[in-house]
Design a binder for these strands. Structure first.
Lengths: 218, 218
DNA sequence: GAGTGGAGTCGACACCCTGTCGAGCGCGTG
DNA sequence: CACGCGCTCGACAGGGTGTCGACTCCACTC
């Protein structure tokens, strides 16, 4: 077997092929179908047959591209978290310039990214309970964000902007957890939820008070 | 929301019978089997046949007692939330006596209740994504707690113990959401989580700073 | 320009789980 | 003692999943 590499961008190892061309369209078609269908109904209501037909192939052929339905979602999740990561960029490095503005930027960008793919985000939340792989992927992503926030909090304490308090890691976990759940409720629209246009400010306020004991840190 | 109770144990209207005697054992046996099995494997891994056999009946007979597998979980969830409600009692009414202690009591009691039924709680989280009824039940329960906290925050602001800030309802939603997600991670043990023995104090700290801007309110 | 091999495709099958239907059992009451 | 009701289950239909083997198409070799 000749060594081949993906022409454009190495679409991750989730899809089963390492290959180059023709069938890539199909793989992409499956992904696109999934994201489109997810905007209409829940992940559980979508059968592999739906995905296959949507991509113009038969059900058995689907298995040529993905080992299971969940793998499609996993790939979609990969993309979203990557987008969130790059959207977040390195705002936390410049915290000292204007803490409130920077934190708001961070939360706002995550909000925008998740909001732009709410169907995928909601589907992942739906499946996380059942699927260990989604759970693991989300756990590693979250761990990265938690560590970033933890480091930022410690830096703020070192420069005297934030008072000592809870272990930074625990604080980071609690705040990230809050965001996740609050966004979920806001996007899903079920149960008590914060209005979408207020959600960033509400979250920001809790973050600032928890970290600085004030909403106007310097 | 009509609360239905029966002679002995207030089993709610979830099980299909309103009745009194013999088959009650079976209904209870199904419930007990479910809670036991849930401690070993995920809800999705438990088939109706497992539940039926565990209760000493056949699969079709299961349907005589519950309309579906999810209904069993719903009943279990009912019990847990009722237990949590009564454990919480009216602590929030006596907030002014010692705010920090009362809030801690509230969070601690919820923690104890959920921790005592973590299998059920985890299973509900697992199923919430898929099952609309679980979602609705959880939403109404949460709404009740949110309103209680909202009222308490407003009372604390009126008596001058807490400064003005976020709309009390939004704050209550954010804090309750945080608790839910943090507990889930702690009990499930996957992903970044706060250690079980610290979790109450961590949550308390964020609640106090968000509400009072200090961890030692008066 | 026949031969080879791998990418890509699908019909058909076995399997598992769900939900339902209809026939049956035992027992208390009129 | 027969009638009804609480309770029980065998058997079936239906829908989804995953797999296997055969088939096509094409690029590339000799």
């Amino acid at each position: 077997m000749t060594t081949v590499r993906t022409s454009t961008g190495a679409v991750s190892g989730r899809g089963r092929r390492a290959g180059r061309s023709a069938g890539d369209d199909r793989e992409l078609a499956i992904l696109a179908t999934a994201e489109r269908l997810l905007e209409q109904r829940a992940f559980a209501e979508i059968s592999i047959d739906d995905l296959a037909r949507g991509a113009g192939i038969s059900r058995p052929t689907f298995y040529f591209y993905f080992p299971a339905k969940d793998a499609v979602l996993l790939t979609l999740l990969d993309r979203v978290t990557e987008e969130a990561d790059s959207a977040a960029g390195d705002v936390l490095v410049h915290l000292a310039e204007d803490p409130r503005a920077r934190w708001r930027e961070l939360i706002g960008r995550f909000h925008a990214t998740f909001g732009g793919h709410r169907a995928v985000v909601l589907a992942c939340a739906e499946v996380r309970g059942t699927n260990a792989e989604v759970r693991r992927l989300w756990a590693t992503v979250l761990e990265r964000w938690v560590q970033a926030v933890e480091a930022a909090v410690e830096a703020e304490r070192r420069r005297g902007a934030a008072p000592p308090g809870l272990p930074a890691r625990d604080l980071a976990i609690a705040l990230n957890s809050m965001n996740e759940r609050v966004w979920y409720a806001t996007f899903a629209g079920d149960g008590p939820a914060v209005a979408e246009r207020d959600v960033v400010d509400v979250l920001l306020d809790v973050w600032l008070t928890a970290i600085y004991r004030t909403t106007t840190p310097t």
